[in-house]
Amino acid sequence: MTWLLAITAGVLFAAGLYMILRRSLVKILVGLALLSYAVNLLLFNSAPLLPARPPLLPPGNGAPPEVYADPLPQALILTAIVISFGVTAFAVVLMRQVYGTLGTDDLNEMRCTDVPCEEVEIASEEEQMEEPL
């Protein structure tokens, strides 16, 4: 089981990295989602997977059982899922905004902030203001 999860996490990492290297915004979005799944699986795998060993104290006796599953990674994943949900939702809105403002989803056409292109900066002052984030 550990091996299966490890290989799945690896495949997800590879696919996610490949996708965020693409030029299209939507593919980058998919890549980010895949990466967050990969990390969640990795976290899931970070404590030994023990079936049917709940981390519960037996009634009456104060000492925990000798072998019990570690519940902490699940708690970490839950937090990570919530965070990645929020981040992905924001990324979707941002990319919609980018598409609305620039009319393209090709990253190669978004070089305005890397190379000087003055006319765009001046033109943008008042025009694209009706749909703020």
């Binding site: 965020i20 915004l25 980058i28 980010l32 990466l35 981040v87 924001f90 990324a91 941002l94 990319m95 905004q97 980018v98 403002t101 620039l102 990253l107 978004m110 305005c112 902030t113 765009v120 900066e121 033109a123 943008s124 002052e125 694209q128 203001m129 749909e131 703020p132 984030l133």
Partner: peptide, 26 residues
């Protein structure tokens, strides 16, 4: 910071925001 950098939605801002967001998420 993601929202602050894109707040206003001007063209250079959203372009910069994409690069900022993707690399920081990575």
């Amino acid at each position: 910071s993601f929202v602050l950098i894109a707040l206003g939605g001007e063209r250079p801002q959203v372009e910069g925001a994409i690069k900022y967001v993707v690399l920081n998420l990575l």
